[in-house]
């Protein structure tokens, strides 16, 4: 299934040379979405009939093996550092949202230290009510809710659980046309770089992966750091070739050779 995400408006012709990297990026993101599609279908089928505990057990059985072993069926390395299902708050009861979310093994997390096995995000202990009240305003929830479509958030530093530089992929879970929550996964940018580096190094020149607002995700260009925004005064748009990553809001960019 293709995900009709918004893609950057390209004012310049796509670069042929950068296309292989863009293809690799799209393939990596599509692999994760393929897994999320499957989870979404299973959760959507269970929501009308399952108890909360049964739903949690289902999500755990889907998510934990992937956090430990990667997406084996798709030959994808372990890109995910967190994943799960976040149920929409029941507005009739005004109850807080239900997080069935697991974190993969963590290193040096300021809250959880170092963990060797997946841990469930402990909502009761971790998140205070103010956050619960407005989590619907966060991009990874708000956009799928508004559009009914898959969404890519980030890269950004997550200050809720992983404290890492991540990209969050979310899919709305619809039952009878009503969104009952989102299925999501946090992709570690570190691991994404490890996965995409061979493709980037296969280019003749340094390059970078940027998101729809030009935020650098991964870069082999020495003057561009992850987290920077392009264009900026030192990096005018005209200096770069770019190739869109089909289906997803990312571009691969590389500095044009001097003429």
């Amino acid at each position: 299934m293709r995900h009709p995400l918004s893609v950057p408006d390209l004012s310049v012709a796509a670069s042929v040379a950068l296309a292989p990297v863009a293809t690799a990026v799209s393939a990596a993101v599509a692999d994760v979405f393929t897994v999320l599609d499957d989870w979404r279908d299973r959760v959507a089928a269970a929501v009308p009939v399952a108890t909360t505990a049964e739903l949690d057990a289902l999500v755990e059985s889907l998510v934990v093996p992937t956090l430990v072993g990667g997406v084996a069926a798709h030959d994808t390395p372990m890109l995910l550092i967190g994943a799960g299902f976040i149920a929409a708050a029941d507005d009739r009861q005004a109850s807080p949202a239900h997080f069935a979310w697991w974190l993969g093994p963590l290193a040096g997390n300021p809250l959880l230290g170092t963990t060797l096995a997946p841990t469930r995000l402990d909502l009761a202990a971790r998140v205070h009510t103010e956050y619960l009240r407005d989590f619907r305003g966060l991009e990874w929830y708000r956009v799928p809710e508004a559009t009914g479509r898959a969404h890519v958030t980030g890269p950004y530093v997550d200050h809720l659980c992983t404290f890492d530089f991540i990209v969050t992929l979310t899919l709305p879970v619809l039952v009878d046309g009503r969104m009952v929550g989102v299925i999501g996964a946090d992709v570690s940018v570190t691991r994404l770089e490890q996965s995409l580096l061979p493709a980037l190094l296969g280019l003749d020149a340094p390059a970078a992966l940027v998101n729809a607002i030009g935020r650098v995700v991964i870069s082999t260009e020495a003057t561009l750091a992850a987290g920077d925004i392009v264009p900026n005064p030192g990096h005018p748009l005209a200096a770069y070739d770019r190739a869109p990553c089909a289906g997803f809001p990312f571009d691969v960019i590389a500095r044009r050779p001097l003429e």
Binding site: G108, P110, P155, H159, G227
Partner: peptide
């Protein structure tokens, strides 16, 4: 302070700020 740290886009700064 935490929001500013997040906008720095540095995971290390966020972690250190929290600690």
């Amino acid at each position: 302070y935490l929001e500013l740290a997040v906008l720095s886009q540095s995971a290390r700064l966020v972690r250190e700020q929290v600690r």
